[in-house]
Nucleic acid binder design. Structure first.
Lengths: 227, 227, 227, 227
DNA sequence: AATGAATGAGCATTCATTCAT
DNA sequence: GATGAATGAATGCTCATTCAT
């Protein structure tokens, strides 16, 4: 992979200009290709997806894909970049650590529900490219790090204020959250035998994390109460 | 994948016959091939691993692999079969639900630590073959189901006895455990930025689950205390 | 190659019509494209040069090339035509055969020095299209034939007048000259390890040919007597 | 190009062992492939020749080619290597410089006549890969350098002994010979309009060079005095 | 039990060419 | 005059698989 993601036709955002010809189905070709690719990459994996398949899904030919992207890797990179830009990984507003954490969970939940595919792409690609060191992989790693760091920071703040308490370090908690979250998503993605609504479980995860952190009643009866 | 049948050349079970030469002959080769394949499948994924690579790792040639296995899929299937047979997915002995759960976690932990690769293979293959329906995939699914069911059963028992209590159904709890567990393993496998010892987190998961289930004292301060 | 016809869009000769804008419009573009193509064809070969490359070099797009030329082959053909028209392959003035030969060499030398690229194009294309039989190839062959014939004629005249003498036939001498000349150019083009000034050698070639032809010592030490 | 030419099945020289099966047409596959490739590379050029074509010519499939060679470039490299090993570029025995030169010419002539294709490959590849810097190109350059150096050395020796004399430096003479020689071969290869027997001309070249070098009248009519 | 040779289907990528605007 | 988008036919290369020995 050597996807630099530059020197590509401008297009991209020109989707609302030039409304006259409705043939290209409204949305710019690049976007349609990205969407198709995203879907297939998540469904079958990067390697198992052929350029031809992606093209056909948009009623185009391989050549068209290569007109817009320099390579398969570049296509993936563009998608990851898109995901990265949309991803809400910052620390949200909130009166205190607890509120911030709740908000964070809420934002994440919303995103996971609205765009599960984006999330799955990150998970799957990070697995498929485990021992690779491409630019794309680094972007994915960065997203994960941001997510994990966000939690760690909030927890740190909470611990200092005495609002949170846990035998686990804040970094560990960050990692724990990310890991468990990914696990839930994966379970759901795999065909979720037991859980029709993976979401449900993700919420359970969040509730349990919140109560596990509560310094005061440290769990009371409230442990793991789903929202 | 199309390796459904089980009738494979001779070898396989002829391990104790023909003992004259104890060298790397016979069954040994099959095992060495499986070991090499397992390692590579986990490291690079099934598709990304070539038969040639597997063979070379054991100082053999492609042909040798095809002497022992009908196809690449068959090789994988054999490995999965092996894992399945070794896997401790039954409900363990124990005086009560709580003890059983502790024992279950303990057994699982031991296995995860001793043979992380086996566990990872399950996870990775279940992802890579998500939308496939091969015999191998079914085996993997079965293992997951067993694991999840085991927990569900113990929890059910505990709930009936009033030892456990949770707003989540026992099936959900089973799925939750499996999912979170997989997530931890994956995070670790991916190069775990934050957690050097994925194991540590897995233990945290177990402790927190136990305390989350505790009906009576609900764990007091004990929530999420690593063993 | 299949560019046989000569009927090409409008442009081409419309160079003096429509003078309003003297900018790089009109004929200019065709010339710029030819120049760029010539340079690239000589540098990388015909096949190895892409239309896109040629267009980019002139800050245009592929489409523009196809507006002016029917095909890549047609572009080459146009260039070859241009070269052919400029090429000084006729027999020059001169009091006698010797003077004519000297003049011929002089004209050729001047051209080779001023437009080495033109010469190289002939050489390289004649090699690259060896077993092709396109119109373009025929043009190139014709140029070579003219050159060779010119010498042969002069030599013939000289032999008749007793000014020249050689064991080689005049046709052979023509071919010999052309071949050696091409060889020198090629050597220079290839990066000429030993000869910084390929020209120098070409001059040596000419001098040696002249003296080899001199009737005086003609049979003498038998210059150029084939074994 | 990244042809290292190592780590390939041994084969190569095992052509006389194992005579039983006459199917592979006696000669080892690798050799047959090299021969076919050589012929095609010379006929159509490296780029214009497809692997498929080469394979078909030997009644094999592309796959077979890739079993024996790591890439198209590697195939070429192997051929060039073969040529290099067969090439008689050393300075031959001889009582004096003149004899050595005659012998050198003789050896070269023999080779050129027996294996014109080998010679042509060198010429054509050196043109096609002009601005490349691959290992293969270096090998070709080396052969050329050897040839040119051999002449230079002999001439140097001759000049010191007073047997040869020329206004051109010995390096220039070496280059001159190589260049002219290549030119003759090329002319012949291109379909040689005027010369059915390119060889004839090459001989003329040699004779003329010899006499041009003769010290006797050396300065005399100043054969080969650059203008 | 294992190897070397070969096959064939598949895949990423390139590139001349077309065409509506 | 010129562009952007798209096509389709190659083309080099990979890899699972087969088979005679």
């Amino acid at each position: 992979m050597k996807a630099e993601a530059n020197a590509r036709p401008p297009v991209r955002l020109a989707s609302m200009v030039n409304k006259r010809r409705a043939e290209p189905s409204q949305q710019a070709t690049v976007d349609r290709l990205c969407d198709a690719a995203l879907e297939l990459f998540v469904k079958k994996g990067y390697r198992a997806t052929t350029i031809d398949e992606i093209a056909r899904r948009v009623r185009l030919t391989k050549g068209a894909v290569y007109y817009h992207f320099r390579s398969k890797a570049d296509l993936l990179d563009t998608i990851v970049e898109r995901v990265r830009n949309e991803y809400p990984c910052g620390i949200p507003e909130g009166d205190g650590p607890r509120e911030k954490l709740v908000n964070f969970f809420h934002t994440q939940a919303k995103w996971a529900i609205e765009r599960p595919t984006n999330l799955l792409l990150m998970i799957l690609m990070s697995v498929e490219f485990k021992d690779t060191k491409s630019a794309t992989k680094l972007k994915i790693d960065a997203i994960y790090a941001d997510m994990s760091d966000a939690i760690a920071k909030i927890v740190d703040e909470g611990k200092e204020l005495g609002v949170f308490s846990s035998p686990l370090s804040s970094r560990q908690l960050g990692a724990f959250y990310v890991a468990a979250h990914d696990g839930m998503m994966l379970e759901w993605y795999r065909g979720g035998r037991k859980l029709q609504k993976g979401v449900e479980l993700v919420q359970a995860l969040r509730t349990s994390m919140l109560s596990a952190l509560s310094a005061a009643d440290a769990g009371g009866k409230s442990t793991a109460t789903p929202t």
